[in-house]
């Protein structure tokens, strides 16, 4: 196994998380801390099914983390618990040392199905979020902020259209602009490009990465696409299969930002990481059935 891969795969150094030890508390290292998190659902007949089992994960400030796993492995549930939309059965999730108990605009979400409000125009959708969250801004400042973010995702021309009139890629750009406009400290993305065709997906990945590279912040993105994770994230969290999914491995992605997809695809490390992640997923797929 080449040295580069050894460096890249920091399973060993992260192993103490997986074994259940509490991660050390050290300032920015612990921007988001998930500890011993489990999620169980009670079925109608009283039996319990475990979705997530003993999840330990920390995310640093300005770190882009991708969570990857097969569908049904509970990765979206993990994201929703961080968002506060679902409650953990046990364990804790802390953001900047504060326990997460309910949803909050400091952890704004980009939804897989866009979740735009169809009775509002593109501009009004973003404005609604700004109105709700940034209450201290004057109307002029709000307008300016909305315009900036419309321009950021190239939607100025479509500002007065309704979501029904937009393509999937445009809708998700609105979703991203809406999320970023309210300046969350942690951006959550639930398979943000999952419903898009391949060409649109590539373009939008580039746009989101451009935005992130110009104003870095903590991002937690759920995906099932290894290439997407390698292109965008600093760290890739590989989940084992559900039920009772755990974190299998954590890969560090060593490519420096700003990234160029053509350049990183020519690096040997890219394929080593890619093969490693894919074989991990394959292994966990065949175990299941």
């Amino acid at each position: 196994m080449p040295i580069s891969l050894q460096e890249a795969i920091t399973v060993k150094s992260n192993l103490h998380y997986a074994t259940g030890d509490r991660p050390s508390r050290s300032g920015s290292e612990e921007f988001l801390a998930i500890e011993n998190l489990t999620k169980t659902y009670k079925a109608g007949d009283g039996s319990k099914s475990t979705i997530l089992d003993g999840i330990n994960l920390t995310i640093r400030e300005n770190q882009f983390v991708a969570v990857i796993g097969h569908s049904g492995c509970g990765k979206s549930t993990l994201l929703k618990i961080v968002a506060g939309l679902e409650k953990a059965s046990s364990g804790s999730v802390r953001l900047q040392g504060k326990e997460i108990r309910k949803p909050g605009a400091d952890r704004m979400m980009v939804f897989q199905q866009y979740s735009l409000l169809p009775w509002l125009t593109v501009r009004e959708n973003i404005r609604l979020a700004v109105d709700e969250v940034l209450v201290h801004l004057s109307p002029a400042e709000k307008k300016q902020l909305v315009n900036e973010h419309l321009a950021m995702v190239n939607l100025t021309a479509a500002a007065n259209k309704y979501p029904d009139e937009l393509s999937g890629g445009m809708k998700q750009r609105v979703g991203i602009a809406r999320a970023i406009a309210i300046r969350p400290i942690l951006l959550l993305m639930d398979e943000p490009f999952g419903a898009l065709d391949a060409l649109t997906r590539g373009k939008l990945q580039r746009q989101v990465l451009d935005i992130w590279e110009s104003q870095r912040q903590a991002v937690m993105m759920v995906t099932h696409d290894v290439d997407e994770a390698l292109y965008m994230a600093d760290q890739i969290v590989l989940m084992t299969n559900g039920p009772a999914a755990r974190i299998g491995e954590i890969l560090e992605v060593p490519f420096a930002h700003p990234r160029n997809i053509q350049e990183i695809r020519e690096l040997p490390q890219y394929y080593e990481l890619r093969n490693h992640a894919l074989s991990f997923l394959d292994r966990h797929f065949s175990q299941d059935d």
Partner: peptide, 15 residues
């Protein structure tokens, strides 16, 4: 989905 948006934006019940 719409209610999730409202919850994440911390809207009051009335809003």
């Amino acid at each position: 989905d719409y209610l999730d948006v409202a919850r994440v934006l911390e809207m009051s019940r009335w809003r």
